[in-house]
Each structure stands twice: as C-alpha cells, then as structure tokens.
Amino acid sequence: MNRTSTTIRVRRSASAAALLLAASTLLATGAAPAGATPGCTDETQPTDPVLGLPVGDGCDDDTPPETRVTASAAPNAAGFVATATQSFAFTSTVSDGDAGPFGFECRLTGGPQAHDWRACTSPVTVAGLPDASAGAYVFEVRAVDLGDRDRTPDNLLVPPTVADSPDEDPTPASVAWGQDTKAPFVFVTRSGYDEDTPTQPVMTSSTVPLRLNSSEPGSSFECTDNGRTTPCTGPRWEVADPKAGRHVVTARAVDRAGNASAWSTPVEFFVPLDLTRRLARTDGWSRVRKSGYFRGDALRAERRGARIVLPRVEVGELRLVAPTGPRLGKVRVRVGRRAWHVVDLRGRRTTLAQHTVLDRYSGVRTGRITLESLSNRPVVVDAVVARPNRFPPAD
C-alpha cells in the first residue's frame, strides 16, 4: 500500500470515529429534557466543531419581550374617537438582557381593512375606516424575539423532549375604539304658549320646561342663557326659578365622540317681575301668600289710593299679572306721566291672569311704572311684565 492510500484510510477512520462519537452523544443527551435555564437569552444548540452537527440540547429562553403601544387619538371614556385616521406607535422592552434582534407583528380586527398577524414596524397608520360603535376596531401589536423565533432548544436529530416557550409577547398590547366623525344635529323646543307674543311667551311658572334632542342617541348638551353657560340635560330640561326679564336660550349637542353640533336657533321667553320684591317701596299694600300666586305670594290692598312705584324702565309692552274674583276692585297703571290705564279685576275667580295694559304696538315709552288702587274694594296684584318692543320674527 502506498502512502497516499494509507493517509486516506486514516482520515476516513478519523471521520467515522467522530461521526460515531457524535451519534453516541446524540443518543446519550437526546433524552435529557430541554428546560428553561435562568439567564438564557440564546436558544442556539451546541454543535460539534468538526462536523457542525448538534451534540445536545440548547437552553430555553422563556422570557419573551413585552410590548407597549400608543394611539395618536386615545379613545375617550365612551370608547370613541372623532377621527378616521389613527396612528399607532409601539416599542418593546426585555427584562433578561436579551440583545435581540426584535421585531413586531400587528393585527387589526373589524372593518374592511382587518387582517391577521403580520410583520410591521412602528408607526402603523390606519385611515379611511367607516364610523362604527365603541370597540368595533381593535389594533394589536406584539414584540417578537427574532433571534429565537426560528430556533428550538431541542436537538433536531432526536424526538423533541419539551415544547419551546413562545418567542413573542403572549399578551399583545392593544387599543380598542369606536369611531364617530360626524357632528350631530340639535333640536330645542319650548312648552308654554302665548297668543299675543308666541315667539317670546311670558312664563309664570316657577320653572320653564324645555326639550333638548339630538340626532345621535347618547349625546350630551351644552346650553347658554343670555349668553352665559348654564348646566342642562336632555331630553327634558327645566330652567329653575329664572330671573325676571328676557331670556334667550341656545343649546348644542355633543355626541359620544366629542363632536359638537352647531348652536341651535335661539329660544326666547320672558319672566315677569315679582312685585313682592318691591314691598319696601309700597304704600298701603301687604304681602299675601297662596300657592297659586306667582312665586307663591302677591300684594293686597283694601283702600283707595294704595300705590306701588317701580323703577324707571323702557316699556314697549306692559302687562299686569293679577288674580280676578267677583269681590275684587280696580287698579290703574301708567308709565311716567302718561295717561292712566284702568284694569278691572272683578270677574270669575282666576289666578295668574295676564291683563294687557299696553300692547306691543303701542310704541315705546320710558319712565317709572305706577300702580294704584281705585276703590275700597280689595285688589291683589302679583307681577308685572314690562319689556321693550323688540321681538324676534314669528315662528
């Protein structure tokens, strides 16, 4: 045998011996379970330096990365956003010092753009989704340990001994939301009717009921009274104990996503002046209480010449709110030094009757309003409507 053939045989023998050694190692170690190892960050299996074949189980990295996500438009307390475009920025963190590399997978549930898990990079923008109810859309993202995703700690040449721990975040970060991009419409209606001034009725009740409605169920409402913000609720809202004078109320609806409607057409009403608040400036009048009176009380006189004088005011329309009855007498009323106007309170028994002294077409005058009893018969006066002759167009 020559030297060359001898060398070949020696090499073949060495290779066969190494292969036999590797196989025996595989058989000896293949049965050992591949369990999680503290501090393990790399699931690469050990290999024979000559043959490159696995010679045993690697360790199991059982600490997957964690994921955080932030939406460009966070859903409000009702679970809605008011935009059709959402951007999601996300990051990953590890607690075991793993150097990665790391990647992400995203999933979108709901709507025509829904998709299952697929690779993605931060940020992801979702645009053009149709409006939908709260929770209709869910964006999920999970961080993935790309270094270990395609590896297993089990020796591939023998049957597996243990399941590989997940290499992606088992609790994906998610954002669920509903979408509403359209503003609602608001409707304001007023109860109570005034035949003489239907667009600005005189309200003699202790509260003024209004109805607030929106084209979108679940809307809240914002209101103003004479330009000042005032709390209100729908569908029925009562303005409690409104101040004397003209009131101009507007409202708007705000839907669950925060979209606000345009302000409503103004709704007006007028509250009379309670005469009992002028008791200190009266002569011959006393306060009487009764549940049917305006604000629960009124002024009563039982002798001729008893007088009430109110402060100077601009008057385009003047009404006297006073009860009537078969035993009541007369009063007279004037503005400034103009002519007196007589109001006869005798008649069938009523409360809160409105007696027109000057109608809205009588022109404007300025001065103190004076009320005076005309006989020794008792008279009761309750409130006064005195307002400029300025009214909105008829409905």
Rank of each mutant, 00 (worst) to 15 (best):
A74K: 09
V384L: 15
E317L: 15
I308Y: 03
D225Q: 08
A244N: 10
N226T: 11
L310Y: 10
V124T: 14
G103P: 09
D167I: 03
A16D: 11
E66Y: 11
G52K: 10
P272H: 11
F270M: 08
A74E: 15
Q200W: 09
V385Q: 07
A23I: 15
C40M: 10
S362D: 11
A36H: 04
T91Y: 03
T350L: 07
R118I: 01
P159G: 06
G58K: 09
E43P: 00
L157G: 09
T199F: 01
T171L: 15
V380T: 15
P231D: 11
V144M: 13
T356S: 01
R190T: 08
T29K: 08
E66A: 15
A82W: 00
T224Y: 07
R107T: 06
V381M: 05
V357E: 01
D344M: 07
M1C: 12
G192S: 08
A78T: 02
P392G: 05
Q354S: 12
D196I: 14
L26I: 13
P38T: 07
V55N: 02
E105K: 09
T189G: 14
T350C: 06
E216R: 06
A22C: 14
L129T: 06
G258D: 03
T93P: 06
T276K: 11
L320D: 02
S219I: 01
P231S: 10
A253G: 03
D180H: 13
T366H: 07
R236A: 15
P153A: 09
V144K: 03
T4W: 13
S362F: 06
A301V: 04
F269L: 10
